[in-house]
């Protein structure tokens, strides 16, 4: 029963936010793309008149073993973060979905972790991870779980895991809240009906919660990917990507190239590379929701 004017309004609703994003982020993205195919120095940074180097910056990157290490780290960082943040987030959300005194308040308290400035989170975790005076080793040694200090942030084999753990701690509450909102929107009748049909807790989770939560889970996975792809400040504060780039990831690497080593072309190429990766993730996301619509 839709009039033409109504349809026009709908399209206007759609164009407003999308247009907004294109207007404000479009230029910065193009700016980066252009720099990634140029030889940019501080001297020519203020002009657009810079030597064109084609894919030179990209070729140089791919030949660089440090870049390959950073890509590998990023893949691990993002994958583990997304999977575990969602798993923990879902577990916590479901637990506090139970009705017991204080449940909602406690659930809200989790968000404190997500509210701290990354600088503060980085410092706190760095202290806790410190091998000699850090709390984590102290506890592990007190309860006899380890007999010598573990070098969380200075052993290149461990540091990535340590950084991932801190980032999961930071990101999970946000994911948990989004999932809670999704769970709250599942009609209670469905659970009651399932119970009447004799479904146990696990079956109800499998056949009611998960299917009803699918759209939310997809959205959350997509967001979590985007956010961990651009994670930056926390890692910087915690390990500066070291030792020897063992915990370095794409955005931090790109920042270091541009702003610490004045290799602006290389920095932009790294950013554009991440952009392409996220573009693929976004396409997958949209494909999946189209399937979901078709169902």
């Amino acid at each position: 029963m839709q009039t033409r004017r109504d349809a026009a309004i709908l399209w206007l609703f759609l164009i407003l936010p999308v247009g907004y994003m294109v207007a404000f982020v479009g230029y910065p993205v193009v700016y980066n793309l252009v720099m990634s195919v140029q030889d940019v120095t501080l001297g020519n940074l203020a002009t657009w008149d810079r030597p064109f180097v084609g894919l030179g910056n990209y070729v140089e990157l791919i030949a660089n073993e440090r870049f390959r290490l950073v890509v590998r780290n990023s893949v691990i960082f993002v994958t583990v973060n997304v999977v575990l943040q969602i798993a923990f987030g879902l577990a916590i959300a479901l637990y506090f979905e139970n009705r017991f005194p204080g449940a909602r308040y406690m659930r809200g308290l989790f968000l404190a972790a997500w509210m701290l400035p990354p600088l503060v989170i980085g410092a706190l975790w760095k202290w806790m991870y410190a091998a000699d005076y850090g709390l984590i080793n102290y506890v592990l040694e007190s309860i006899g779980l380890s007999d010598g200090p573990i070098y969380w942030l200075s052993n290149p084999d461990i540091v990535l895991a340590a950084v991932i753990a801190a980032n999961i701690w930071f990101g999970t509450p946000f994911i948990m809240l989004l999932l809670s909102a999704g769970i709250a929107n599942i009609p209670r009748e469905l659970y009651e009906a399932a119970s009447l049909d004799g479904a146990g807790a696990i079956q109800r989770f499998r056949f009611v919660t998960l299917p009803m939560l699918k759209a939310t889970l997809l959205a959350v996975a997509c967001l979590a990917t985007v956010y961990t792809m651009r994670a930056f400040d926390l890692i910087w504060a915690l390990s500066q990507g070291g030792p020897i780039d063992a915990s370095n990831v794409l955005p931090l690497y790109s920042y270091q190239l541009s702003f610490e080593q004045f290799r602006f072309g290389g920095g932009s190429a790294v950013a554009t590379f991440s952009f392409v990766v996220v573009f693929i993730v976004a396409l997958l996301y949209v494909r999946t929701i189209r399937h979901e619509k078709a169902m």
């Binding site: 000699d132 942030l153 200075s154």
Partner: peptide
């Protein structure tokens, strides 16, 4: 020296000294 020196800023090295570590 602690292997953590690879992740210590100068003021952190000084801090461990001041704290008696």
């Amino acid at each position: 020296a602690s292997p953590d020196v690879v992740n210590m800023r100068q003021y952190e090295a000084a801090n461990t000294f001041m704290a008696g570590n």
